[in-house]
């Protein structure tokens, strides 16, 4: 049995190896691109959704901000709540149908990236929202208190921490994308799974090809998990549990010049002595 399987896989691979690899390449490229674009969409939604307003703001500002929140809400619910396969059908076949061929995408890659990105974005918007909520409000106030705008607060303070916190969710989304992009066969996208259907149809051997697919998908996701863990570690920052060596830092710090030309830590004496330095 096992030797037969190995033989079958060998013969399939020798003939269709390159086709499988091209399929893997397409799946990988679509999943990576769409996950990245999806993340950008998710973070953009996160920034837009959290723009603060108070009841003393102009009505137009309040109206627009409320509208933005409602639009994002609808976007999330619609794209999270319908199958990606149908979304692909709607965009690829539906748009030309409804617009009498005025609007149509002819490039399968464009439609595939569009559909998977928008889908990932809908999930990511919720992940980012959760990530932003998990950062204590104090840091937002600290940023506000030194005059930072909402966008600056988000870009430099909140989102870097959010990114770290939602790395596991980004990993989830990426791995789901690696597998679920196979539904793009509906519009003719040649991903890894489409190769299986093509090959098994051609050689009339269903299971050996499925075995190749299994191993292929698992390899893709395991490598992704490994790399994501590495990235997570890196985002954690190197010195997280490392105590700062005071002596060393005094040496480094002492090489700077200060406006008032004093040695580091001279302030202790100054405070007791009551001198001023400005």
């Amino acid at each position: 049995m096992l030797s037969q399987l190995i033989l079958d896989i060998g013969s399939i691979w020798s003939k269709y190896g390159m086709v499988y690899l091209t399929g893997i390449g397409n799946t990988l490229l679509l999943a990576v691109t769409a996950t990245l674009i999806g993340c950008v969409i998710g973070f953009a939604c996160g920034i837009l959704q959290t723009i603060p307003y108070t009841r003393t703001d102009l009505w137009i500002k309040r109206f627009l901000l409320k509208l933005i929140r409602i639009v994002i809400r609808i976007y999330v619910e619609v794209f999270r709540g319908t199958p990606m396969i149908l979304q692909a059908v709607f965009i690829y076949y539906g748009l030309p149908y409804f617009t009498a061929n005025a609007v149509r995408f002819t490039d399968i890659w464009t439609v595939s990236i569009l559909v998977v990105s928008i889908n990932t974005g809908a999930y990511m918007a919720e992940s980012v929202r959760g990530g932003i909520m998990s950062i204590d409000i104090g840091q937002t106030e600290g940023a506000k208190a030194i005059g930072m705008t909402h966008l600056q607060t988000m870009l430099y303070v909140i989102l870097p921490q959010t990114l770290r916190n939602i790395m596991p969710q980004i990993g989830n989304n990426y791995i789901i994308n690696v597998k679920d992009t196979s539904v793009m066969f509906i519009i003719g996208f040649q991903d890894f799974f489409a190769v299986h259907k093509m090959v098994s149809g051609a050689v009339f051997k269903y299971f050996p090809s499925a075995m190749v697919e299994m191993v292929g998908y698992l390899t893709l996701t395991l490598v992704a998990s490994f790399l994501l863990r590495k990235l997570e570690k890196k985002l954690e920052g190197k010195g997280n549990y490392e105590l700062v060596n005071t002596d060393q830092l005094v040496m480094t710090a002492g090489t700077y010049s200060y406006p008032d030309g004093e040695a580091p830590f001279a302030e202790k004496n100054r405070e007791i002595g009551g001198g001023n330095n400005e």
């Binding site: 010195g239 700062v244 200060y258 830590f265 302030e267």
Partner: peptide, 23 residues
Amino acid sequence: RKRALHYLNKVGMLPYINARPAQ
């Protein structure tokens, strides 16, 4: 940077410029 170091020196935190709040 000059100003930041000046004021960090003033509050006696110059040795800790590379530390993070959690530390």
